[in-house]
């Protein structure tokens, strides 16, 4: 066929074999069940009717350290859990990789850092991370009382590991939650996340 003569079709062949992680903002957030630091199973569906924040974390990542060493993350956790928001810190680091911790280490880290998440959840298989398309630590998500995903992206507007930038940046989690709580729509629903890569198994 003549058209085919000048048709050179080059499809690159590195097809990834991973389940497609797609975020649908303003759609129902996919449910998941993970084990917490007490060994209990926690499901997203347990928190229907509450605001839920998902925080992907890895305590050894410099970008996570930026927000914990400065006390920024802890103060967000305290402020919002006091208001009845459910804060889930999720660790998708695979065994043997950076940030992977045992239950005891997780409890110890929460105490030593004076953190206040509702639960620390373990996702060593990375399945929930991939379900939500979590790319970096930190990577933040806000789910509203109806179970709809309302925010996904970076913790704030300045992509750096420098704690001095925290004050200068717009905190998107704070912006998002206060907009939702006052019945407004979020102005920045999706922002590109920044940080270390989530240390997935594959």
């Amino acid at each position: 066929m003549k058209v085919k003569q000048y048709l050179s079709l080059a499809a690159l062949a590195f097809i990834s074999c991973f389940a497609r992680a797609e975020i649908h903002i303003d759609a129902i957030a996919p449910n998941f069940s993970l084990t917490n630091e007490q060994g209990q199973t926690v499901s997203l569906s347990d928190y229907q009717g509450k605001y839920v924040v998902l925080e992907w974390t890895n305590h050894q990542c410099p970008y996570v350290e930026k927000h914990y060493n400065s006390g920024n993350m802890q103060s967000l956790q305290k402020k919002y859990t006091d208001d009845g928001v459910v804060w889930l810190s999720i660790i998708s680091s695979a065994p043997g990789k950076q940030g992977h911790v045992s239950s005891n280490q997780a409890i110890e880290l929460t105490q030593s850092r004076n953190a206040a998440p509702t639960h620390v959840l373990f996702d060593p298989s990375g399945n929930v991370g991939k379900l939500y398309g979590a790319k970096t630590t930190p990577h933040m998500y806000i789910i509203d009382k109806q179970g709809k995903l309302r925010y996904a992206g970076g913790i704030d507007s300045i992509k750096s590991a420098n704690p001095a930038d925290i004050k200068k940046a717009v905190n998107y989690v704070e912006q998002g939650l206060s907009a939702l709580m006052s019945g407004q729509t979020i102005s920045n629903k999706l922002t590109p996340p920044y940080g270390c890569s989530v240390k997935y198994k594959s």
């Binding site: 000048y6 048709l7 050179s8 079709l9 080059a10 499809a11 690159l12 590195f14 990834s16």
Partner: peptide
């Protein structure tokens, strides 16, 4: 970034 890109030569 991790997804394959398809190249199609529409015309020369």
């Amino acid at each position: 970034h991790n997804k394959p890109q398809q190249i199609v030569a529409s015309t020369p």
